[in-house]
Simulated scan of single mutants.
Amino acid sequence: MAAREYGQYCGVTQALELVGERWALLIVRDLLVGPRRYGELAAGLPRIPSNILAARLKELQAAGVIRRVPHSRVIVYELTSYGRELEPVVLALGAWGFKALGDPRDEQVITPDAMTMALRTAFRPGVAAGLPATAYAAHVGAAELLVRVDGATLDVARGDGAVDLAFATGPDIRRLISGELAPERAIAIGVVEVLHGRVELLERFAATFHLAA
Rank of each mutant, 00 (worst) to 15 (best):
M1F: 10
M1W: 08
A3G: 00
L16Q: 13
E17M: 08
E21G: 13
R22E: 11
A24N: 01
L25D: 11
I27H: 06
I27C: 05
R36M: 12
E40N: 07
G44F: 05
G44V: 02
S50M: 13
N51K: 15
I52P: 00
L53G: 06
R56V: 01
A62Q: 12
A62R: 13
G64N: 05
I66F: 09
P70N: 00
H71Q: 10
V74E: 11
I75P: 00
V76L: 03
Y77T: 02
Y77H: 13
Y77E: 02
E78N: 03
L79C: 04
T80M: 03
Y82W: 12
Y82A: 15
G83M: 10
R84T: 14
V89H: 15
V90Y: 04
W96M: 15
A100W: 14
L101T: 06
D103S: 15
R105G: 15
D106M: 14
V109H: 14
I110K: 04
I110F: 11
T111H: 09
P112C: 07
D113V: 06
M115V: 06
T121I: 11
R124A: 09
A128T: 12
A128H: 10
P132Q: 09
Y136T: 01
A137F: 09
V140R: 01
V140Y: 00
L146M: 11
V149G: 03
D150M: 05
A152G: 11
T153E: 14
T153M: 08
L154N: 01
D155L: 06
A157G: 00
G159N: 05
G161R: 05
V163F: 10
D164Y: 02
D164L: 04
F167M: 05
I173E: 04
I173W: 12
R174E: 09
L176E: 02
I177P: 00
I177E: 00
G179K: 08
G179D: 08
P183L: 04
A188I: 01
G190K: 01
E193M: 03
V194H: 12
L195E: 14
G197A: 08
V199M: 11
L201Q: 04
L201N: 03
A206K: 03
F209W: 02
L211M: 07
